[in-house]
Design a protein around this nucleic acid. Structure first.
Length: 491
RNA sequence: GGAGACGUGGCCGAGCGGUUAGGCAGAGGUCUGCAAAACCUUGUACGGCGGUUCAAAUCCGCCCGUCUCCUCCA
């Protein structure tokens, strides 16, 4: 199915065409985490979005996908927090050594592992990535790019750092492809006091940061000088994209806040150094708010995924919630919404169990039955249209309402199951099994009370029956009567 | 100060000139000794004020509010 994507470069929804269309291959690069702490749920949206995107490209678009997400393991924060004597150094990380680079690596590796386990909890699978490169593994490639940019005349050294000359670049190409930059007002505002480096113009950005006291450093050979330092923020992405995916590649994702300066600078660097417009489709996800407010530590609405899990939230519900808002819209993350979504999700799961009973566990392709085929067209049509996940869900629920399992024959049930299973390759929140038998660990005492209650009920001793139900409830269980028996559930 | 986005019923969230979005909650019903679950039915809306139009949640203007970027940031 033809996919359409909203492209920040053109601010419009465009039909997607892969560079290697004949090979059926799509290349995606996503800005990944800076591993100096646990990721928060806002970050999680930025990782769930490309996961859904790449699955839609695979399942709906029929592409093979090469998905790369970088791990930023060198920046001000990772250096600060891994520095000798840092208060942020946790004992689980191990012992600090006198080797700064080794400390940095241990520190970032710790948070990388935590990060991977977080995204795995959201069912973003590690094995789904083509690569997850560490920035510090690509220092030579970054240095090579800096020299290429220098050779073209768009980089200069000043005060032990190397900068990108935006003014010069603007003579050669457009700067401001992802964002309208008002150069007249660019230098006003709060930006000036942040200018602790000696660049020529405030709009210039650093390619290579000169080493400061106590910082790990690599030697850059640049225009006859040896410059100890480390890569700037933007250069790592440009170099790794080139090295791992090649340029141009198809899709670059990230949060909206990265449009400028990060992605704008990435384009400028890549094009200046490699001579190629690096990315065909830029796709940005909007921010997430919590209970209608910007997430911040001072408001007490700042959550990492682990915070939520500690509160008893099922990470699968967090994943499911992402489908309820279009990726390019601001999302209001609420605990009420989490619960509401969970119920909706279980409704579909119940539907699947019911269909399973109808079909006797048989699953056939969606094309085998007209209603399943139509459902597939409707839902995949919405997903293909710039990932209209809320509308896709609406289509699903409309179908469930109009095709109750009780009125579905075995052939239709099997075919609808076939489609839902295919859909589940994208959403991955449902089980395709017979309805599991309740395998509750019921204490013998509760079991006896329940039996006694059933007997009381059968002999129409309802007062005793209700009393026993109270006893059972006091022990944390709920009795649900069925036609010829009862079931116990955890309260 | 500059650039841009958004404001939909109790909550979440589609819609982008005329037609029931959908989910959760609520209400009524079927079932049940009563419940729970399940299923059926169902009400409430477009921040404010003007304007364009036969017709506006949808287009235009102003105002109010929220948010993003210009500075590390998903």
């Amino acid at each position: 199915m033809q996919i359409h994507l909203s492209n920040t470069l053109t601010r419009s929804v465009e039909p997607f065409k892969a560079i290697r269309e004949t090979e059926n291959l799509v290349t995606i690069y996503s800005c990944g985490p800076t591993v100096y702490n646990y990721a928060h749920i806002g970050n999680m949206r930025a990782f769930l979005f490309p996961d859904i995107l790449q699955r839609v490209l695979r399942v709906v678009g029929g592409y093979d996908v090469r998905w790369v997400m970088n791990i930023t393991d060198i920046d001000d924060k990772t250096i600060r927090d891994s520095a000798l004597g840092s208060a942020a150094w946790r004992t689980e990380i191990g012992e600090q050594t006198s080797d700064l680079k080794q400390n940095l690596r241990r520190f970032t590796q710790f948070y990388t592992e935590e990060f991977v386990s977080d995204i795995e909890a959201l069912l973003i699978h590690r094995k789904g990535f083509y690569q997850m490169p560490f920035a510090t593994d690509y220092i030579p490639q970054m240095q090579d790019l800096i020299r290429r940019i220098g050779a073209k005349g768009f980089a200069y050294e000043r005060g032990g750092s190397v900068y990108f000359n935006v003014g010069e670049w603007r003579n050669a190409d457009k700067y401001g492809k992802l964002f309208n930059i008002d150069f007249e007002n660019f230098q006003e505002g709060v930006r000036i006091d942040a200018d602790e480096y000696e660049r020529e113009s405030v709009s210039d950005f650093v390619l290579w940061k000169g080493q400061k006291e106590g910082e790990p450093a690599w030697d850059l050979e640049f225009e006859g000088k040896t410059i100890p330092g480390r890569p700037g923020w933007h250069i790592e992405c440009s170099a790794m994209e080139y090295e791992i995916l090649g340029v141009p590649f198809d899709i670059h994702t990230g949060g909206v806040d990265l449009c400028f300066p990060h992605h704008e600078d990435e384009i400028a660097q890549s094009k200046a150094g490699y001579g190629v417009e690096p990315v065909n489709y830029w796709c940005h996800n909007e921010f997430l708010e919590v209970e209608g407010e910007k997430m911040s530590k001072s408001k007490g609405n700042f959550f990492t995924l682990r915070d939520l899990i500690a509160k008893g939230v099922d990470p699968v519900d967090v994943r499911w919630l992402m489908f309820s808002t279009h990726y390019a819209s601001r999302m209001n993350f609420t605990f009420g919404g989490l619960e509401s979504g969970r119920k909706a999700r279980f409704r579909v799961q119940e539907y699947i169990y019911d269909l399973w009973e109808r079909s006797g566990g048989t699953i056939t392709p969606s094309g085998d039955h007209a209603s399943a085929q139509a459902l597939r067209n409707a839902i995949f049509g919405e997903l293909a249209n710039d990932l209209q996940t809320p509308k896709a869900l609406a289509e699903l629920f409309t179908f469930v309402n109009r095709h109750p399992a009780s009125g579905t024959d075995a052939a239709e049930a099997a075919s609808v199951l076939g489609f839902l299973k295919e859909l589940n390759e994208i959403v991955e929140v449902w089980q395709f099994t017979p309805r599991p038998a309740q395998t509750l660990d019921v204490p013998a005492e509760v079991q006896q009370l329940a039996e006694a209650r059933w007997q009381a009920k059968k002999s129409k001793n309802f007062a005793e029956s209700d009393r026993l139900r109270g006893e059972i409830a006091a022990r944390g269980f709920v009795v649900k009567d069925t036609k010829d028996g009862f079931a116990l559930e955890k309260a």
